[in-house]
Computed example of a mutant assay.
Amino acid sequence: MSERLIDVLDEHGRVRHTYPITLGEPGASAAEESYEAKALEAAAHSELAPDEELREFTAKPHASRSGPLQPYGDSLRSDSETKLGLEQVVREHAYLLWVEEGRPEGRATDHWRRALEEHVRHRAYVLWRQEGCPEGRAEEHWNRVCEFQEF
């Protein structure tokens, strides 16, 4: 897999957030446009800005700076855009569900599935809203989010 830092810029060309984007299979390379598109999807999923503003955002490869690949410039969590980050977000949510239900024994798998489904549903909803709430396309957005996260 190949990881790159991609800057998401607002309509004035200011960097709003930098996402570490991972694409492809080990040893494979992906087109720069694919990284930029995934960064814009990540911005929509993380609700970086109101939907109206997001339509004006652009993305570009981050100018190199020394150090590890990490986002900078704001406090938004971007880690759910990677497989490892998604696992951590779902684990934390599953734990909260478990606590809310009184810490029942033997239901870890149920809590995990519910947390994952809620996370994916929320991301599909955000994407649907970002695209202007088109009627009759909810399933399309669900499928895009599932594909995006390799569900």
Results as ranks from 00 to 15, higher is better:
34 S>K: 11
65 R>M: 13
13 G>E: 10
36 E>V: 04
2 S>D: 09
71 P>I: 11
142 W>S: 15
79 D>W: 13
4 R>F: 08
55 R>F: 13
61 P>G: 14
122 H>L: 04
31 A>P: 14
127 L>N: 14
85 G>P: 06
62 H>G: 04
41 E>G: 14
126 V>A: 12
129 R>Y: 09
41 E>C: 12
102 G>V: 01
33 E>N: 14
124 A>T: 09
86 L>D: 07
72 Y>W: 09
51 D>S: 10
35 Y>K: 04
104 P>M: 14
96 L>T: 02
122 H>A: 06
75 S>C: 06
49 A>L: 04
36 E>T: 05
55 R>G: 03
46 S>L: 13
113 R>Y: 03
136 G>C: 12
76 L>S: 03
117 E>I: 01
65 R>N: 07
13 G>M: 08
137 R>L: 10
66 S>F: 10
49 A>H: 01
5 L>Y: 15
148 F>R: 09
94 A>T: 02
40 L>I: 07
30 A>M: 13
103 R>I: 00
57 F>P: 02
72 Y>S: 15
33 E>S: 13
143 N>A: 15
30 A>I: 05
71 P>T: 13
53 E>C: 09
61 P>S: 08
45 H>D: 11
104 P>E: 07
34 S>R: 10
146 C>H: 04
106 G>V: 00
28 A>I: 06
129 R>D: 12
36 E>W: 05
124 A>P: 09
90 V>H: 00
114 R>N: 01
28 A>T: 14
135 E>G: 06
95 Y>A: 02
138 A>H: 01
141 H>S: 15
116 L>I: 01
109 T>Q: 03
58 T>N: 09
87 E>V: 12
89 V>F: 02
112 W>S: 13
11 E>T: 04
36 E>G: 05
106 G>F: 05
108 A>R: 08
99 V>K: 04
69 L>T: 10
45 H>L: 12
1 M>W: 07
65 R>G: 08
20 P>D: 10
124 A>F: 03
103 R>M: 12
74 D>H: 09
133 C>I: 13
60 K>M: 03
